[in-house]
Design a protein around this nucleic acid. Sequence first.
DNA 1: CCTACCGATCGGTAGG
DNA 2: CCTACCGATCGGTAGG
Lengths: 224, 224
Amino acid sequence: MRFPEHPIELAAVPRRTRGRPRKSADERDDGNRRQDVLRAAAQLFRQHGFAATRTRDIATAAGMQSGSPFYHFENKQALLGAVILEGMQRAVTRQKAAMDQASEAAGNSPPDPRQQLRVLIRTHFDVLLGPDSEFIPVMLYEWRSLTAMQRAAVNDLRRSYEGMWVAPLQALVAAGAVSGDPALARLMIFGALNWSVQWFDPGQRATLDDLTDTALRLFLKDCA
Amino acid sequence: MRFPEHPIELAAVPRRTRGRPRKSADERDDGNRRQDVLRAAAQLFRQHGFAATRTRDIATAAGMQSGSPFYHFENKQALLGAVILEGMQRAVTRQKAAMDQASEAAGNSPPDPRQQLRVLIRTHFDVLLGPDSEFIPVMLYEWRSLTAMQRAAVNDLRRSYEGMWVAPLQALVAAGAVSGDPALARLMIFGALNWSVQWFDPGQRATLDDLTDTALRLFLKDCA
DNA sequence: CCTACCGATCGGTAGG
DNA sequence: CCTACCGATCGGTAGG
């Protein structure tokens, strides 16, 4: 049994407006709170997995109350989709920027395929393991938790991302610098890179440049 | 409100013993039901992940009632540990057997490191993707869901498994057939192989022998 | 975006 | 190993 909050002299108490006090226009965050929820979700999904993460914990990590994430996202499932979609968008954007920059550095001519592969791999590691890199690992771990429709939406981006690797790899296979069935080899290269989310520890000796070197030396025949 | 099962003539009805009728000795399964639970758990953990799997579904898949898995395992967490431990034990056993067999085939002399690597990779794919291969993928996906103590128990086996790769790989690096930092290269090779649990489809063209060939051609310099 | 809450699910158990 | 059940958790919502 609760006691009523104002048992007497209701009128004497300063009237409090119902609900939250409205923030003034310049105090508003213009929807940035949505980004906070998204980032918090990505971090927790990455640490504990989708199913093991409580939406309450996402709320707390974003500095809000337990029900509030559902103001920004329909449900937990949609939150997962948004995290993974955001991750793929960032990956594609950054990879395209890196490739453009490499082209410029090579005097606006297409860089040689070895250099292209180096840039692709280095950027890939950065997306996977660099700062703010919780989004793509969530995709790698939680792909199976997406609905069929969410998968389809992400697949477009994924195909576009993977497409950037095809030309350089085929050139390297044609030049004898990479051996094996190109499609299978590409899957294995992705595996070698993606697996690093399981073991890479930024506190250890190896840097992302070290990883890139190791990968290139492992995959490329330099005797051809 | 339930009706009593025998409202009248209780004595006329053949006495039913309480609980389950005891099975005769030759009808008993000698604890094989535990294996059924373990296999069912492995399959469901592999498909949906640990946190998303209901113990009720494990029970159903093993052909028992919802509470019965807890007769065989203390709790869900212990079930995960048992699945992963069983997986690692199988992997070590099979890999050792394969290496022994390869030694015999080479006339009880140590096979050359290329051949050793081929055997290791081929067996690895078999453990990962062959028949009854749900146990190790659970470990790859759900390592983070283990308790610290469970991890320690599995780590002994894991070290022993990974140890089998060290000598041949170092020999290959020494011979110039594999390039790069040996420890990092090993991690990347494992990644390339382990990632196959994400994309390999036994219904497709590629066989485990194809994967093995591709991997060897990708990692080994044959020009040295 | 908070308050206050609901309804279903799910791991787990007592007793036989 | 089943029956019958509990207690806690957790995604989600109505209303402001």
